[in-house]
């Protein structure tokens, strides 16, 4: 079974209205695979009847969709205004040096992906990192090393 066929099967349980919404389908694929494969874009274009160029536009617009495979764990570091004021840039640089990778990339062992996001809506807890979908607020630069160690174990 090809990947396109497999993706199409994942959409079987959806209502016809859900199947006409590109963002809903992209979210489903992202949750299922951890990223959005190129083939999925074509499947979604076919289902929604929208041009592939527009589906790609949606998929690249939102930070919650990734077009590249991600690591087993994903660390998202907020670079929004409140987090920026609270030193999010230094946290990002620290993470990059600890992981020996750049933002938007996955570590060489394929375990951790580092991404930056623009505000996740809990600025009162700045600076914020999201680890595998779980928000950690008021993060201290010293907490980063143990956090990564835990993920690797």
């Amino acid at each position: 079974m090809g990947i396109s066929e497999e993706i199409r099967n994942k959409f079987k349980g959806l209502t016809s209205e859900e199947r006409s919404r590109p963002a809903t389908l992209l979210k489903r694929v992202q949750a299922e695979y951890g990223y959005v494969p190129e083939d999925a874009l074509e499947v979604i274009a076919g289902l929604t009847g929208l041009p592939l160029s527009q589906i790609k536009g949606v998929a690249t617009f939102y930070a919650s969709f990734s077009l590249r495979p991600r690591g087993t764990h994903v660390i998202q570091i907020c670079q929004g205004t409140a987090c920026h004021v609270k030193g999010a840039k230094r946290l990002k640089e620290r993470l990059e040096s600890l992981l020996n990778t750049e933002t938007g990339q996955t570590t060489e062992d394929g375990i951790i992906t580092l991404e930056e996001v623009r505000c996740i809506g809990c600025c009162n807890r700045a600076p914020v990192v999201v680890v595998d979908g779980r928000t950690k607020g008021r993060i201290n630069i010293r907490e980063l090393e143990p956090l990564i160690r835990d993920l690797r174990d």
Partner: peptide
């Protein structure tokens, strides 16, 4: 179509 946003916004054609 347009891809990405902010300073990375560009016009591109998906390979497909």
């Amino acid at each position: 179509g347009f891809v990405s946003r902010g300073s990375e916004r560009a016009v591109d054609a998906p390979i497909g």
